[in-house]
Design a protein around this nucleic acid. Structure first.
Lengths: 188, 188
DNA sequence: AGCTAAAAGCAAATAATTTGCGTTAGTGCG
DNA sequence: CGCACTAACGCAAATTATTTGCTTTTAGCT
């Protein structure tokens, strides 16, 4: 619904988008989200409300758009040591970010729009990071879970708990990973 | 936010709640959800809009409330044959229900409200059903996954795929279960 | 530089939400 | 049984958000 690449004739697309996104980020950081409205965002972004309505449709889609752009990772997973150490560090950071107050709000914003494209995009970010870790392990010849197993048996349980129950802790996360590592299989 | 038991002095609570819930269900079944508004619901339920606003707060909370009541299971998991057969049948029916159009909408409604109580309630319904299956297996002395493993490694991946990717198919679901059954462990 | 079309501004019209106040209907007690 | 009490409801006015028709601005193109 937004940011068509290949901008056609008219349109000062980029400027408005940046101003609105910034306004939303500022407001989410400084006030209760229930008080964030499109007229207020428009005022802070120096834009008219109708511009936002025409471009994003409604508040939920705008919030989802902002959340998605905030969830886009800007760096590859850090290189700590072994492939497993990298994985554990990355997943713990992922879980922390997602289970924080703002993280949960972003996920909710993304899931609450009818269009599934934004949710898929965010899942794509996660998948992309995991693929880097998998490739790195393979390159080094270290034993490592498959990409699918990581999605199904590490990411999914973490996300389920964040969405429906309580935020997972570090011990739980290490347990999920451990159960997928071949050398640890005997423990379970 | 709704249905206080132990009704105090005033209040014809139950009648309005039933009428509004019914109106919402009818409307979700017969029209596009984007066109469902509180004034329309109020009209169909023969209630004034302000009653709905005061009682539920906003449309999202009302939809979440209705969705939660629809997701409450009315029966125990069916007894097909072995504990495993019961489990497979129940999980497949769960996945079908959740990945259908209305199922996905209900989940989104539930997750999109700030208050996590409704989401927890729904997860509680799932847990309750699984506990029945676990208890049944134990009673019969059949090998069976633990409750936690079912939540983490069957329900969670299914829900993740429904929310962020494509709906899971029956083969995928059987694979998730299979990997948790002791006698099948060698296959993986 | 001028042309074009998408995007933005503006303002009026419409629709949704909030709110104050009077009324009604369950509940518990005498 | 009827009276008092209180939470929930209805109504309508006020506020706020959203939609829409029309004009103006801007970025890319020739």
């Amino acid at each position: 619904m937004v940011s068509k690449e290949n901008p056609r004739p008219g349109g000062r697309s980029a400027r408005v988008q940046a101003a609105v996104h910034q306004a939303v980020r500022d407001m989410l950081a400084s006030m209760d989200r229930a008080d964030v409205t499109i007229p207020l965002i428009a005022q802070r972004a120096n834009v008219t409300p109708s511009t936002i309505y025409r471009r994003w449709g409604d508040l939920q889609e705008l919030l989802a758009d902002v959340a998605a752009s905030r969830l886009q990772p800007e760096t590859e997973p850090a290189k700590i040591g072994s492939a497993r150490a990298d994985l554990e560090a990355w997943v713990e950071q992922y879980a922390d970010e997602m289970s924080s107050g703002v993280g949960r709000e972003m996920i909710r914003d993304i899931l609450s729009v009818a269009d599934t494209a934004t949710a898929e995009k965010c899942s794509g970010y996660t998948q992309q990071q995991l693929r880097v870790l998998v490739a790195r392990a393979q390159e080094r010849g270290e034993a490592f879970p498959t990409f699918t197993d990581l999605m199904d048996h590490v990411i999914s349980p973490i996300m389920y708990r964040i969405l429906f129950e309580q935020a997972p802790d570090a011990g739980y996360i290490r347990g999920l990973i451990s159960r997928l590592m071949p050398q640890d299989a005997a423990k379970f």
